[in-house]
Design a protein around this nucleic acid. Structure first.
Lengths: 200, 200
DNA sequence: TCCTTCATGGTACACATGTATCATATCAGC
DNA sequence: GCTGATATGATACATGTGTACCATGAAGGA
């Protein structure tokens, strides 16, 4: 075998270019040629590493989800054990809000794709619904445990509280993305919410 | 002047066709020809009543917002005076969740357009950010008044609570649109939230 | 050394889309 | 009844897009 190129790395470079284009001009502006130009490669190369456009998008989303999972795991590892529910929740919220540029790009691409999945049953199955659903289950478990240990008040419903947390988080994220609110203001509201949750 | 046709009505018919196409196939599938076919008119007619595609989208969004405002006013008119804050909030939440098919189409189009506005500064100005912002101000006012009258606890911050309400509402709306949750479950969470807000 | 396979460049093709243009029927007003 | 503006039909055009095809350099194994 000749030339020997790291496909994973090449694919990551192209996927990053896609994310940059999408974050700058929107997902509708993501064309094979635009991604190729942004990545500094030829159109043919994008075709070579991702057979089709659907696979390009799919692969990019998978990469984003994997990185998100990694960051989340790193945050969790930095917490004391056993993990206090409040620290867990706050770590989650700090991760799931578009604060810096990278995070903004991530959430923008994700949200755009979610909107596509709303009408395309082909896309609906994949992790773009399952990811948040999984997070919600995990959060529910943490809150349930916290309630059992007395960290959370007994009259709180873990499942509903988890749904509420994800909902308020997503809603604030959207308001930041559209420029209605700054990340700091959004974080303020989230802190208020968490404070209410644990301190009543 | 000949023929005399009601332009407003014609435009409304075409705009409705656009909403149907967008709700069924997504905003990316909204093409002049698709809208024309859905409306049962020729491509030329769509061009005639909306000079350009941007104006078609813009006009449709304006129509949707006007109708939304009308429905909201009707709900408000049905409430007893002076309006109890809790009733006001519950009316708002009942309106702002994609329950039936019409509401789902409305929210889907709105969300899709909001995603476009995230990267297109041309679109960012229009009511698609101002609408929710205005609602948030109104809600803040109602909650402030409620706090003054004792209907809302004194340790609640009206502005933050309003932001939180809109955020959780939007987040739940999105989860319904992507099929993660049914409208009933979402309404359940909202009721829980409102209950917490007023009853502690 | 040669040859097969990988990596990459260039380009053509079919198709959809927004917009512009030409044509025509219909009817109000003089 | 004539006329001119209105409403609508049909179609052409330039452009962008995803995909397919052909060619070629590069390098490791026989």
């Amino acid at each position: 075998m000749p030339k020997t190129v790291d496909h994973t790395e090449r694919r990551a470079g192209i996927a990053d270019a896609l994310v940059r284009v999408a974050a700058r001009d929107g997902l509708h502006a993501v064309t094979l040629r635009a991604v190729a130009a942004e990545a500094g490669v030829s159109l043919r190369l994008v075709q070579y590493y991702f057979e089709t456009k659907a696979q390009l998008l799919h692969g990019t989303l998978l990469l984003l989800e994997e990185r998100s999972r990694t960051r989340w795991a790193a945050r969790l590892a930095a917490l004391p054990r056993p993990v206090p529910a409040r620290a867990y929740v706050e770590a989650f919220l700090a991760e799931a809000l578009p604060t810096d540029e990278r995070s903004r790009a991530f959430h923008l691409v994700w949200t755009s794709y979610a909107v596509l999945a709303m009408t395309d049953p082909e896309l609906a199955g994949q992790p773009f619904v399952a990811g948040p659903a999984r997070l919600e289950r995990e959060l529910t478990g943490v809150l349930r445990h916290a309630r059992a240990s007395g960290e959370l008040a007994a009259d709180r419903d873990p499942a509903t509280e988890a749904a509420r947390l994800l909902a308020v988080n997503h809603g604030l994220g959207t308001s930041v993305l559209v420029g209605q609110r700054g990340p700091d203001d959004a974080m303020e509201v989230l802190r208020y919410h968490v404070g209410r949750l644990f301190d009543g």
